[in-house]
Design a protein around this nucleic acid. Structure first.
Lengths: 235, 235
DNA sequence: CAGATCTGGTGACTCTGTCACCGCGCCTCA
DNA sequence: TGAGGCGCGGTGACAGAGTCACCAGATCTG
């Protein structure tokens, strides 16, 4: 499926993280507080695709105001199974970060850069200050938080009350590009649908048998989007 | 199982709601805006057990600062299946309400009074004003929102990544009273575990066979809480 | 007492998800 | 350049989860 890039980016991401961790130890000797000390003086922030921005248990360095790129936030169970919670795009809030800052707690999920990001990092102390003083900023944040909550609730509804096929159809329609193709591995679809890889393969094969999708080398072509939309609303 | 009360309260709840709806029509002629007009002048707010406070699609009358009682918030799927999202206790925020007020949208879930409630209802307009001006109030709300968010994430984790038995065990431990008994129907447990009633019955029978619980007329006695706790951490 | 309603038990399914194992294509590195 | 490693996807066999239909007992209601 021509996704060799993935491994490449993953390893460059690991490099990025290792460099930071190393730098952190040089600076403070405490890996956990690296980010805040490293970045509290830096307004501008960048990270390449594949970089792990945060993992469960880590401290939160501050509030990231994303200007460009995309961050994927996931939850991993003890069995190793992964669920995609949401993505952060420019203008949106990373709810993980918000929660950490407000409750002064550590992260509970994992954040990975999906498209090279660039933005402003507002240190924790300053975040609280701005939240108090700047009405517009506060409103933006609250609106974004409220939006995120709706998404979470939708996710709960999908996982708890909706059949698998509907979930799969929904995800395919969400991830499709302009040419009608979804460039994602079955494994990734499993994380998106909170399901298992093998089952995704099976159902996708069934969809293909029905002529709804077509599995190509470049990805999955959605042949009958209307039918998919209908499936996505069942049950 | 001696839960005849339920039906009683449910019907008294329906009466309460009908009276309000009727009153609303008399006042404004628009059922949907009843609450805000009816209550914006009333700081004090009460409702009896079983009353439906809000349903999907309704407008939000304002922010309820709960002083006493308990509200259960649930989501109902098109199949009729119900999932308990969370409960609001005194000092906590109803996230539904918060989201509605911030985004100026209608409710997406249902709220039912579980124990007679009493509190202050802050009209929408005043809520925004207080959020801007009162640092302490805003902090309380934000902290509570952040807490709620953690719960939501936990729920997603439970439903998406955890086995049924663990979920059931968790719920039993959460709902048990001081005497070691859970006074809840299998149907209610199904909503709490985001599962089906028949399956709950089956697994509970299996738990009983293993001597972990005992099913009595008054409810479910947890005989081996330690073992339950262990089950609740599996998978 | 008859009927309505809520509750829980059960058999017989279907749907979902897992595990293990296979083959393919691509990369790496000796 | 050929052997090995690895990520990806397909499949059979199985286990876990959830559904449907139907039954029976308990409780209220009139």
């Amino acid at each position: 499926m021509g996704l060799r890039k993935r491994a490449l980016f993953a390893s460059s991401g690991a490099d990025f993280w290792m460099r930071l961790a190393l730098l952190g130890r040089l600076v403070s000797g405490v890996t956990n507080r690296v980010w805040s000390e490293l970045l509290s003086t830096v307004g501008d922030f960048k990270a390449p695709k594949g970089a792990t921005l945060f993992s469960p248990g880590q401290d939160c360095p501050g509030f990231l105001k994303l200007k460009q790129g995309c961050i994927k936030v996931t939850l991993t169970g003890s069995s190793g199974r992964e669920v995609v919670l949401y993505r952060v795009h420019p203008g949106e809030v990373c709810l993980q970060t918000f929660t950490c800052l407000i409750k002064d707690q550590t992260y509970a999920a994992e954040g990975v850069v999906e498209e090279d990001i660039q933005g402003d990092l507002i240190p924790a102390g300053k975040f609280h200050q701005v939240m108090e003083q700047d009405d517009a900023f506060r409103n933006d944040v609250l609106t974004s938080v409220a939006l995120r909550f709706s998404e979470y609730q939708q996710l709960i509804e999908d996982v708890a009350l909706t059949g698998f096929d509907a979930r799969l159809a929904k995800v395919l329609l969400r991830l499709v590009d302009a040419t009608g193709i979804v460039h994602v591995t079955h494994t990734a679809l499993a994380a998106e649908t909170a399901s298992g890889r093998a089952y995704v393969s099976r159902r996708l094969a069934e969809f293909a048998r029905r002529g709804i999708v077509e599995q190509l080398a470049e990805g999955i072509r959605l042949c009958k989007p209307a039918e998919l939309a209908q499936i996505s609303e069942q049950k």
